[in-house]
Design a protein around this nucleic acid. Structure first.
Lengths: 210, 210
DNA sequence: ATGGACATGTAATTTGTTACATGATTGC
DNA sequence: GCAATCATGTAACAAATTACATGTCCAT
């Protein structure tokens, strides 16, 4: 298949990038792979989008596919491989496309930003949960880095370097959340000191406090 | 206006959140504000989406609007204000909606991940540019934190705490990029040492190297 | 008077998700 | 035999961007 109309969205390149690192993969495997490699620094597209991207990459001749039959039955499984043209196009994208600004949608911080509307312990809970999440991601990235680190294939040096970046990133994310939590606790402490002071100075409980 | 059909996307809450912090704002002003406050931790929607979100928030009675005329002409300018219902809905969202995982689309790291396809200095350039970007963002966040920090309004404590988080975040982003740059330089150094070693041991230049 | 910022929106398109349909294989 | 996982996709919808249209105000 061939169609003109150039320059794909970044997500397509991400999928093609996976195929450039791995060998022959099915859409399903690609999604699983995205969940444990891409996900650390680039979001993992849904199944349906992976299939859609593969279709588009095929139309551009950046990938080829063949249907693999299981020994016994007819359970077809379409396996994709990057073509030389695909590899070339990918290299061109890496080398020449303008780099988009990183996209961050941090819903935890969005909620913290609206903390004045939150019930007392809500932000605390959210941040504790987020610290957990960051630590889990860090551990997973570290495990992957170690697993791939044992491989001496020079093709892996960049993915491994990026995995190290990911480990540090989630470490920082964890620490940043801890710092914010400490800041908020500090704020709470200041508030109650002030409350106690005013209570002592008026000699009566503050009627503004429920 | 009133329509049922509950639970808006996060972006709607982000826009409503801005209105909860500021007073009366136009769509245009909202976009400008998003660019210098929201942008640090949540992406800034396009103009057209801001307008679309405002329409939707209006349909939910979460905002009201009025058209402000300039002294002389008819240049209408629609100004939006959050309603009590809007504030309540926003508080409910903060307190009770499940927190989505942070979304990160780091196109710089995506390119680094494909570094084996990049020309020698390309990654270097991308990373240096990214370090610049992170430093600029850090500076802007720090300036905002200082500007708002002078304000003693207790409504601002949470936005200011989040701004401090942003300052640290972009600081970390900068350092992480520097570390990765150092890692890659190290890799290059190792490679050329190996090259020189093999050259010396064979007593002739390596023909594999162009 | 002209270009740039202010200002508001619509239309077309793209990007991405969720829900659905379908069926095979594998382990218990 | 039955649930979970493997596997592939389509259809409907939602989210978001870009391009376009339109006009004002302000400084040079």
């Amino acid at each position: 298949m061939t169609t003109s109309d150039t320059s794909l969205p970044t997500t397509s390149w991400a999928v093609l990038g996976m195929l450039s690192h791995a060998g022959e993969l099915s859409g399903y495997e690609l999604k699983k792979w995205a969940d444990w490699s891409l996900q650390f620094f680039y979001w993992s597209p849904s199944f349906s989008q992976i299939y859609a991207e593969l279709k588009r990459l095929d139309e551009h001749d950046y990938v080829t596919s063949r249907i693999v039959q299981s020994e016994d039955g007819i359970r077809g499984k379409r396996m994709y491989t990057i073509t030389d043209g695909g590899r070339e196009a990918l290299a061109h994208w890496v080398n020449h496309s303008p780099v988009e600004a990183p996209v961050l949608k941090h819903s935890v911080m969005l909620r913290a930003w609206l903390g004045n509307l939150a019930e007392p312990d809500r932000l605390r809970d959210i941040l504790v949960e987020h610290i957990d999440y960051a630590e889990q991601m860090r551990r997973r990235a570290a495990a992957d880095a170690e697993a791939e680190g044992s491989d001496r294939n020079p093709d892996w040096v960049f993915p491994i370097a990026v995995l190290r970046w990911c480990v540090r990133h989630y470490e920082a994310e964890r620490e940043l959340a801890r710092d914010l939590l400490a800041d908020l606790d500090q704020l709470e402490a200041t508030k109650s000191v002030r409350r106690n002071r005013s209570r002592r100075s008026t000699g009566a409980p503050n009627p503004d406090e429920s």
